[in-house]
Design a protein around this nucleic acid. Structure first.
Length: 491
RNA sequence: GCAGCAGUAGCUCAGUUGGUUAGAGCACUAGUUUGUGGAACUAGGGGUCGGUGGUUCGAAUCCACCCUGCUGUACCA
């Protein structure tokens, strides 16, 4: 016989299957987050996975590489793309429905987004984002509200206040500083921002070389620099190292007057902190001069939630984790669709990253308990039952409905295996108990309950088969009517 | 995209200076145990040695090209 060539059960790179405990925890987090967003007065919105490419594509990082980074194709009429975030679709939605919406408009959205980029450890091409935004106000109160919402949500998800900080800055400050240093070329500005964004990873020296001539990485690959002169570089490095203490209560005055834009940023930050300082997250929401965020469309306040504990990968090594959430003000995004001013501010939580982090917090280990398994004794018994002097089929369904109406996860074994195979199955499903109801039980009107949980514990001490078989206290027989109560004791 | 490293069973890997029929552990199936999960023992299934071409009497092993993966870097709305 010629062998068929089998398909390989592979996934496209950057995509993963999820199962069991991980998914249960993910659903639980989503529930917590949704409830909290509603508590803060946000209303839900759902938009399609696909958008018309043009509507979400204008803010691609490189104009000369349109469509890179997204999954898209042309239908009969338009180029359409899977969304790469939830912000661009929000802008489109607000543009379409502006007149009907409350101003400000507060909405949250949970959804999958797709990015056609190189995947890495903990970085996928499909992931879940959770966003909350306030559209239609320039009031800094809204920025403060979403920052507080971010902090509050992380705590409700199970982080303690000492597990994270939310670093805050204002785009106007940094660009104001650059303006004062006579760096005005837009490309230089965005590249400078991106270089500063790498401070965490590359350190001051790395940022310096990226701002100057360029940098060689470990593999010998060379990255071209921004080409600033040494004086400008020195000033920038100084500024990004003033950091948290600079704004403990009120701003340090050392850069006052360097440019109008800078002063405006400081005013906004002062206003922002006046709000967060009286919230319960005064110590978590802190100023950080080196926070810039690589995203192009931010116009004012920016913030990022950073975890303060180490996250490990599957092999137990610490990994470079990045932020679990962030956001900021983007006053020009919505107005692409609309003549009116539609300033906006919001946050985004990377749910899958948060999930990985939460799984490493001890209090979050969910155990995926399987169903109580009712073992089936005779193959084809459902056909064979009539004519016997005992009835074996109907009681299975009776037992099943007793358990299920008591809210106990349960099932009749639906495979073809022997009793032994059924036990193995129940074991693998992490079932708390197996129920045996065969000829013996049927004649006496009883059921046998095998306590798989207790058996599992006992098995660690048992060395040989004889002891295992003798260990009968993991099994008991009860009257049919007592079944539910006995099972409940095991759960 | 650029650079470095790596690809042998479902998974993790061994395979000597090129030499018979390519191995181990885990996982899987069955039996020892005809109605009982673990452990142990026994047996079994499973491989185009990433692909193509070349060198050679002989290639998993050496060479060339290609593909894929990992790591770093760039990009990351």
């Amino acid at each position: 016989m010629v062998k068929d060539k089998k398909l390989k059960p592979e996934l496209a790179s950057g995509f993963i299957d999820r199962k069991g405990n991980e998914l249960i925890l993910k659903d639980r987090l989503i529930e917590i987050i949704k409830r909290n967003f509603q508590l803060f007065g946000f209303e839900p919105l759902e938009t399609p996975g696909f958008e018309i490419s043009e509507n979400i594509g204008k803010f691609l990082p490189d104009e000369d590489r349109p469509m890179s980074g997204v999954f898209g194709f042309k239908d009969d009429k338009d180029w359409i793309s899977l969304r790469y975030d939830l912000t661009a679709p929000l802008a489109r939605y607000v543009g379409a429905n502006f007149n009907d919406l409350s101003k400000p408009f507060k909405r949250y959205q949970v959804g999958t987004v797709w990015r056609n980029e190189k995947p890495g450890p903990g970085r996928f091409r499909e992931f879940t984002q959770v966003d909350a935004d306030v559209v239609g106000t320039k009031n800094i109160l809204a920025d403060a509200e979403v920052a507080i919402l971010l902090a509050d949500t992380l705590v409700k998800c199970g982080l303690s206040k000492s597990d994270f900080i939310i670093r805050v800055n204002n785009r106007k400050c940094l660009t104001g500083i650059l303006e004062g240093l006579k760096i005005k070329n837009e490309k230089q500005i965005i590249n400078t921002i991106r270089a500063i964004d790498k401070k965490d990873r590359l350190g001051d020296e790395g940022v310096k070389s990226l701002l100057g001539k360029g940098r060689k990485d470990e593999s010998g690959d060379f990255t071209k620099g921004v080409g600033l002169d040494p004086k400008q570089i020195k000033e920038i490095i100084n500024y990004i190292n003033t950091d948290i203490e600079f704004f403990r209560e009120a701003p340090d005055a050392s850069y006052d007057g360097i440019s109008k834009l800078y002063d405006e940023g400081i005013k906004e930050l002062t206003n922002f902190f006046n709000n967060t300082r009286v919230s319960e997250f005064r110590d978590q929401i802190v100023y950080s001069s080196s926070l810039v965020r690589g995203i192009e469309y931010y116009t004012g306040t920016i913030f990022e939630a950073e975890l303060l504990f180490k996250v490990k990968n599957k092999k137990g090594l610490d990994i470079e984790f990045g932020s679990v959430g962030g956001g900021g003000r983007y006053d020009n995004l919505v107005s692409r669709f609309f003549k009116n001013d539609a300033p906006a501010t919001g946050i985004s939580i990377g749910l899958d990253r948060l999930l990985v982090a939460m799984q490493q917090k001890e209090n979050n280990n969910v155990e995926n308990i399987g169903p109580v398994v009712i073992c089936v004794f005779e193959k084809n018994q459902f056909l064979a039952s009539p004519g016997k002097d005992y009835d074996i089929t109907a009681p299975y369904y009776k037992i099943l409905s007793m358990l299920r109406s008591a809210g106990i996860k349960s099932e009749i074994y639906s495979g073809d295996g022997s009793i032994k195979a059924q036990m193995k199955y129940a074991d693998k499903r992490n079932s708390p108990a197996a129920i045996l109801y065969g000829e013996n039980e049927a004649k006496l009107g009883i059921v046998t309950i095998k306590n798989l949980k207790a058996g599992k514990e006992a098995s660690t001490k048992i060395q040989n088969r004889e002891d295992w078989r003798k260990n009968e206290n993991i099994q008991e027989t009860v009257k049919l009517e007592d079944l539910v109560n006995e099972i409940k004791k095991l759960l």
